Simulated scan of single mutants.
Amino acid sequence: MKRLLLAAAALLSVATAASAADLRARPYAKAAPPAAVVAAYNWSGFYIGAMGGYGSETDAGSGGFGGGTIGYNWQFPGSQFVFGIEVDAAGASIKDSVTEDFGGGLLVTSETKINSFGSVTGRAGFAIDAALLYAKGGYAWANNKASLSAVGVGAFSDSQTHTGFTIGGGLEYMFAPNWSAKGEYMFTSLGSETYNFGGIPADSGTIDLHTFKVGVNYHFR
């Protein structure tokens, strides 16, 4: 019995040693280093586009507009920050009309209409591959026509160009190698101008304009 136990122990010892040697000899492959993250899109370069939307004055008129955009973006390789400059202009029909009774049957109608507006802005954004979240701000202008009319008195009108500032932001998405779509909100504040109605001057007061626009841009690569 003792010899049988000794033989079993020897056999077990040999098997354990062989297994350990086999474990030591088994090769292990090292994990490959992670691949460098490379941005799939780069926003640098010139672009042109078309845009349109809806605008409203604070406590006043509203209406639609449509126009064009031209701009340039800078994005350094390996960076997600995008900087640019953008110029846009639009024809518009943002208008308001009010009729007031001054007594004695005198009804006076006053009308205002923003015929066109535009801006020159700087733009700064953060790119996440095909998406660009951005803010923008700068110089703004608008051409506005105002008129007064009363039955039995006559009608008078004048046009003035107002200037001021605009600020806002939006989201742009590159849906094809050279094409992007955007949605944008802008707040515009324009200074007062003096209108002349038949020799009678009238101060317009500040024009505050809210615009919501969508657009499509073509990027030159």
Results as ranks from 00 to 15, higher is better:
T166I: 02
A50C: 09
G64S: 13
G169K: 02
E172T: 14
S159E: 13
H162S: 09
Q75E: 01
S149L: 07
W74S: 09
F212K: 10
Y195S: 10
L11C: 05
T16S: 08
L106Q: 08
G78M: 05
W43Q: 06
F81L: 11
A202P: 01
G103H: 06
N73C: 05
E100N: 14
S157R: 10
F102W: 08
S159P: 13
Y134F: 15
E100A: 15
A18Q: 05
G198A: 14
A202S: 12
I70D: 08
A92Y: 01
K136C: 00
A176L: 07
Y218P: 02
E172M: 05
A135C: 01
A150P: 04
K30H: 00
T163D: 05
T206V: 05
G137D: 08
S204V: 08
P201S: 07
D101G: 03
F83Q: 00
T16N: 01
F197L: 08
L12P: 01
G64T: 10
A90V: 11
E172Y: 05
Y54T: 05
G68K: 10
S56T: 11
F117W: 05
D101N: 10
G138I: 13
D88W: 11
R221M: 15
A21D: 09
N217K: 10
G52A: 04
D101Q: 09
A35W: 04
W74N: 03
G61Q: 00
E111V: 09
A36Y: 07
G169Y: 02
T206W: 02
G104S: 03
A20C: 02
F83S: 07
A92F: 01
A90K: 06
L23V: 06
I48M: 15
Y139Q: 01
A8G: 14
Q160Y: 04
I167L: 13
F187L: 09
P34G: 14
K182I: 08
E57A: 10
W43T: 04
N115F: 04
V87H: 09
L23S: 07
F156W: 15
I114G: 01
F83P: 03
V98Q: 15
F76A: 15
L133K: 12
G71W: 04
M174I: 06
F220N: 02
G215P: 04
D208T: 13
A21Y: 02
N42E: 06
I94Y: 11
A31I: 06
V151D: 15
F81C: 06
A36L: 07
T69F: 02
L107A: 04
I167R: 00
F83M: 01
L106H: 11
V82I: 10
L148F: 15
A92N: 05
A202D: 00
T69E: 09
D22M: 12
S97M: 01
F81S: 11
N217M: 03
D96W: 08
G183F: 00
N144Y: 14
G198P: 12
V38C: 04
D88C: 12
G215S: 09
T166P: 02
F102G: 01
I200V: 15
G168W: 11
I128M: 11
G103R: 12
R3W: 09
A89C: 13
A146R: 11
A25E: 04
Y139E: 02
A9R: 11
